[in-house]
Design a protein around this nucleic acid. Structure first.
Lengths: 229, 229
DNA sequence: CGCGGCTTTGATGTTCATCAAGTAAAGTGG
DNA sequence: CCACTTTACTTGATGAACATCAAAGCCGCG
C-alpha cells in the first residue's frame, strides 16, 4: 500500500478513507491535501470568512470561539488532534460563524471541500462515517456546555483543569494552553475570578502554580470539586 | 404523483426525498413511516433508551432536555415542526443522551433508522441534504446557548419571550408553552427569579401576564432588553 | 526603556440563589 | 362533587456568590 501521499500515522480521515474507498481513490484524494503549520497564537480561521477547505487538526491544540458585537470572545470548544476544525458551519453555511486560533503550535490538514462533498455523494459508507464523526463532536460540545453551566466557579475551574489532565496532557504537571482571560471566556466567568479561584486552589494545596505551569497536587480533591462544586 | 402514503404538506423530509429520489423509492420509503400523536406533557423520548427510529416533528412543539444525577433537568433546545427530534445522538450513539417531551400537542413522524442509514449510503445527494440539515440544527443550538449565556437575567427572559414571538407564534399574545420552572431550566436561572423578572416586566408595562398567557405591550423595549440586557 | 497586555490582590457593590411562607390552580381518591 | 394532596406560582427577606472597579507588579516586545 503506497502511502507516500498520505503518510500520517493515526490519521482518522485516512482510516475513514481506507475503510470505505478503493486504494487508488485514496491516492487521488490525499494527493490534493495541503498541510499547514501554525504557531501558538496564529489565526487558522477567521469568523465570517468563506469556507473553501475542509480542515482537520493533525497535531497541536486550537480554540474555536465566537466574537460578539462588543468584541468579546466566547470560547465554544477546544479541539484536539483528529477533530475536524470545520465542523459546525461546514455543511450548512458558506461562511464560518466562528474563529479558530492555535493555542499550541499546530498542524492542520486541508482538503478541498468540493472533493469531500463529492466523496460523500458517491460513497455512502464514507458519508455515514463523516456523519457519525460530526454527530459525536457536536454531541460532546452541547453536553460539555451543559456540564459547565451547572457548576459554580470553583467547580468550573476544577472542571477545566481536570479536562486538561484527563483528555489532553495525561500528566499531573502541564502548561496551561489558555490564558486566565481565555479560561474565563470558556467557562463564562471574569478573568479576576479565574485567578482568584486558582489562587484559592493553591492556598488549599490542591495545585501549585508557576505562571502558566500547573501541577496538580491533590487530584482527588480536585476531582470532587469538579464533580460536585 | 401518488402521495397517498406520504401526503403531508410542507414535509421537509419529503422535500428532501423528492429532490433526490425516484418516485417509487419515495413510495417505498414513506410507506414505512409511522405517525404518533402526543398530548402536551407526554414523553416522546426517554434519555437512555435505545434509538431505533429516526423521529421528525410534524406539528406541535417539544423540549429536548438532559437530566443530571440529582434529577435536575436542563433544557437543551426547543424543537419546532420540521426539526429532527433525533438529531444529536442519532448517528453517533445507540442510546439517546437526552429526553424529549411535548410542550404542546404534537405529532411525530417516525422512520426506521436502518432505512435512513441505507438511504444515506445509497443516495449521495440525499446524504448531503441530511448532513446540511443536521449541521444547521446543531449550529443553531450552540450559537443560541452562547447568546443566552452572555446575558443577565432580564436579558435572558426577554430573549425567550422574543424567541416565542419571533420564531414560534408570530403574535404579540401567546400562551407560554413552558412553565416558569422550565424557563429557568432553559436559560439557567431559578424559578423564583424567572417569576420576579416577569413581574418586573409587568410593572414596567412591557408585558401583561394572565397565568400562562403573555401579551407583549412594548415590543421595542423588550427587544432592546433582549439585545443589550 | 516604555508601552501594552497579562496577572494578581483588595475593596466594594450588585446580582442572583436560597429560604420561608403563602396563595392559587390542578389533579386524586372517596 | 368535595376534601385532600400535590404542583405551580408569587412575594419578601437575607446572605452568598460573583462582577466591577482600582491599583500595582510583571513580562515580553518593539
Amino acid at each position: 500500500m503506497n502511502q507516500e501521499t498520505c503518510s500520517c500515522e493515526l490519521c482518522d480521515l485516512k482510516t475513514l478513507f481506507y475503510a470505505h474507498l478503493e486504494e487508488e481513490q485514496v491516492e487521488t484524494f490525499c494527493s490534493g491535501k495541503v498541510e499547514k503549520e501554525y504557531k501558538n497564537g496564529d489565526v487558522i480561521v477567521k469568523e465570517g470568512s468563506l469556507i473553501h477547505d475542509f480542515v482537520y487538526l493533525k497535531s497541536g491544540l486550537v480554540k474555536l470561539f465566537h466574537t460578539d458585537a462588543n468584541q468579546k470572545d466566547q470560547i465554544i470548544t477546544i479541539a484536539k488532534p483528529f477533530d475536524y476544525i470545520s465542523m459546525l458551519s461546514v455543511f450548512s453555511n458558506k461562511h464560518y460563524n466562528y474563529s479558530v486560533t492555535a493555542i499550541e503550535d499546530s498542524v492542520t490538514c486541508c482538503l478541498n471541500m468540493q472533493n469531500i462533498i463529492q466523496l460523500v455523494k458517491t460513497n455512502g459508507s464514507y458519508a455515514i462515517g463523516i456523519i457519525e464523526k460530526m454527530s459525536s463532536i457536536t454531541d460532546k460540545i452541547v453536553l460539555t456546555s451543559l456540564e459547565i453551566r451547572k457548576r459554580n466557579l470553583r467547580g468550573r475551574v476544577a472542571y477545566v483543569l481536570m479536562y486538561f489532565y484527563d483528555e489532553v496532557y495525561q500528566s499531573l504537571e502541564f502548561e496551561l494552553p489558555l490564558s486566565r482571560k481565555e479560561i474565563g471566556e470558556y467557562i463564562g466567568m471574569t478573568t479576576e475570578n479565574v485567578i482568584r479561584t486558582l489562587s484559592e486552589f493553591r492556598k488549599d494545596k490542591i495545585i501549585s502554580i508557576n505562571g502558566k505551569v500547573i501541577e496538580i497536587k491533590d487530584i482527588e480533591t480536585l476531582k470532587s470539586i469538579a464533580l460536585f462544586g
